[in-house]
Design a protein around this nucleic acid. Structure first.
Length: 573
RNA sequence: GGGCAGGUGGCCUAGUCUGGAUAUGGCGGCAGCCUCCUAAGCUGCAGGCCGGGGGUUCGAAUCCCCUCCUGCUCGCCA
């Protein structure tokens, strides 16, 4: 296994500096590295200039004069107290291109780790269609899962279906008792859109009609008491709703490996086991009314949030209590559990982790929080009907993409136009959501969400299509990774970017910094476009094969990036 | 009131964890570029006291303290 050229280069540069400092009598210097714009590596000398008893500028110059061209170091220079290093270009270029050709769609991937990683995402309440307020969840979760797979792990994704509690009971009551077909205000024939009208109507009736309110309460009490008929009934409704949600998710290339039902943890007794275990802990106490809670003061939870109630006075469990049973179950199936959650779950997640600790569990889930997407006029609400549905966003995106395709490609058959429009529209939506770091609050605006140029999904797709087109037009060529033929500044820049993909993937996956991926994709695509504009490829004589190889490699890496983003790499558009 | 996030050109955004040399890109604006491979592209220009104030440091968008604005949260809801 070849060591990554870049890290080997860095190691050599640091070792060289260390050796020279040592000869000057300076030991244990604090040597830091960074990657500047005009060189491959820089070491600031400020950190150890005091130790060396020399101003940084002079020190850098003194060290530089001692560095010889060796290993992967092709040159070193000193400027403003910095030591700048350049890598032996031929080695980096050759290794990078040959590696991409050899590994193809596996380029950048880490070797198999054997680690089972569970990513729980989406998990929206089955009371209505997915709206864009929560659309970050499936997109973040799915992108993260795709990255982690390439990081070598056995990844499984799952949706925790909330089929317990008042909200789904209200919905079920509505479906069972409102006999007239409801005007949903839309033509979309999908269960989630059909059923949400009953949810809204039932909520309104419950507020204005005490008879309805009493019926719903009664149904809820029967549910809590374990009435099999009610539980089955509610689950049936949730399943119907979920059928619609799955279609939406499928539409943005998100599929989940598993759906886990909350009610199962009541049925199999594991929630009750959690309750009895918690009751015996020293942090547990019972109030006069009979409910049980944990005092989490010692767990860094401050203010008046220290009490976490885990049973009602009638002994029934609460959401977080069942979530404890769920996490214990997840831990038995995975080595690492990641929860993608809305920011409103922060306190609950903290309470969950503390309670797990109290239960003697030596593991905690890794929570990834995102801020909700809001509308310019405020927060979205399914109950109030103040929403933009993800289905509508996708339809609009695909519709606008179709217009774009038609305006530039009159030669394509209708099916091809539709296919491209779908891929472009979905690419625009996914890219736009994932490009921003999750905790940033986002206000939804149609024109921003549907951008097709600049830093966008279609921009990357366009470059992929462009590369495909060039290769097709070129006909045959033989692979040639001879770096002496690729010395143009645009070629050099492009290859350096290609060589970084593995480390970007690691940060995006292991560190859960998924927004680095679209940034990298844009950097790569932009460098390709500059190369394309400045350097002739097909009619370039003796460099033709090498340049076509570079086009092929760029296409491969871009396809890998797009795959991580869940965006289709189009052959033409 | 407490806790947790976010605040970077007109708008959106990277960098903050791990402090460094002229703060990353995009949108929009202005000016150019298709008789070479897809112009969903490329090139150039204008636009910034990194919310504000202190502090630490040779050096702060980045670390510490204070403060302001925005969001989330503080059910025997889920």
């Amino acid at each position: 296994m070849k060591v990554n050229v870049r890290s080997a280069f860095e190691g050599q540069a640091v070792a060289a500096v260390k050796e020279i400092l040592s000869s000057m009598g300076v030991e244990d210097a604090d040597i830091r590295t960074e990657i500047p714009d005009n060189h491959d590596l820089a070491i600031p000398c400020f950190t150890f200039s005091k130790k060396a008893g020399m101003p940084p500028k002079e020190l850098a110059e003194a060290i530089r004069s001692g560095i010889t061209q060796s290993g992967l170091i092709s040159s070193a220079s000193a400027l403003n107290g910095y030591l700048n290093f350049d890598i032996k270009w031929e080695d980096l270029a050759k290794e990078t291109l040959e590696s991409i050709i050899e590994k193809g769609s596996e380029y950048g991937a880490a070797p198999k780790s054997g680690l089972r990683v569970n990513v729980e995402h989406t998990s929206t309440n089955p009371t209505g269609p997915i709206h864009v307020g929560r659309a970050r969840n499936p997109i973040i979760g799915d992108t993260l899962a795709r990255c982690l797979k390439r990081c070598g792990h056995d990844v499984s994704t799952e949706y925790y279906v909330n089929d317990v509690g008042k909200q789904v009971v209200i919905l079920t009551w509505g479906v069972n008792n409102i006999s007239t077909a409801l005007e949903t205000g839309e033509e979309r024939d999908k269960t989630d859109h059909r059923l949400v009208a009953y949810y809204r109507a039932a909520n309104a009736m419950m507020e204005s009609d005490s008879v309805v309110s009493e019926q719903i309460s009664k149904m809820l009490r029967r549910f809590e008491a374990g009435d099999a008929d009610v539980i089955r009934n509610v689950r049936k409704t949730a399943e119907a709703m979920l059928d619609g949600l799955k279609i939406t998710l499928d539409g943005i290339n998100v599929t989940l490996d598993r759906y886990t039902w909350e009610s199962d943890f009541i049925a199999d007794g594991s929630a009750a086991k959690v309750v009895s275990d918690l009751k015996s802990s020293k942090y547990a106490s019972q109030t006069e009314d009979g409910s049980w809670n944990l005092d989490l003061k010692e767990f860094g939870i401050q203010g008046k949030n220290t009490r976490f109630t885990f049973t009602r006075s009638d002994g029934t469990t609460l959401y977080t209590t069942r979530d404890l049973a769920y996490h214990i179950d997840k831990f038995s199936r995975s080595d690492r559990a990641i929860d993608v959650l809305g920011e409103d779950q922060k306190l609950g997640s903290k309470q969950l982790c503390s309670a797990l600790e109290i239960l003697g569990c030596d593991r905690a889930p890794e929570a990834m929080f995102y801020s909700f997407v809001s509308l310019p006029e405020g927060k979205m609400s399914t109950r109030k009907g103040v929403v933009v549905y993800l289905d509508d966003l996708i339809d609009e995106a695909v519709g606008r993409a179709r217009e774009e395709v038609l305006s530039r490609r009159s030669d394509l058959p209708k099916e091809k136009v539709d296919e491209i429009a779908a891929a472009v529209g979905i690419g625009a939506v996914r890219f736009n959501i994932i490009r921003v770091q999750p905790e940033k609050q986002l206000v939804f605006k149609w024109d921003e969400a549907l951008s097709f140029d600049g830093n966008s999904g279609p921009y990357l797709q366009y470059v992929h299509a462009r590369a495909c087109s060039m290769l097709k037009r070129a006909g045959g060529y033989s692979q040639d990774a001879d770096p002496s033929k690729l010395t143009d500044e645009y070629e050099v820049k492009l290859i350096k970017i290609l060589s970084k993909f593995g480390s970007v993937l690691t940060s995006a996956g292991e560190m859960r910094r998924v927004h680095l991926l679209p940034a990298y994709g844009h950097e790569l695509a932009s460098a390709f476009n500059q190369f394309y504009a400045a350097v002739p490829v097909i009619s370039s004589g003796s460099s033709r094969d090498a340049r076509l190889t570079l086009v092929e490699c760029s296409k491969t890496v871009l396809a890998n990036v797009l795959d991580c983003l869940g965006i289709e790499a189009l052959e033409e558009m």
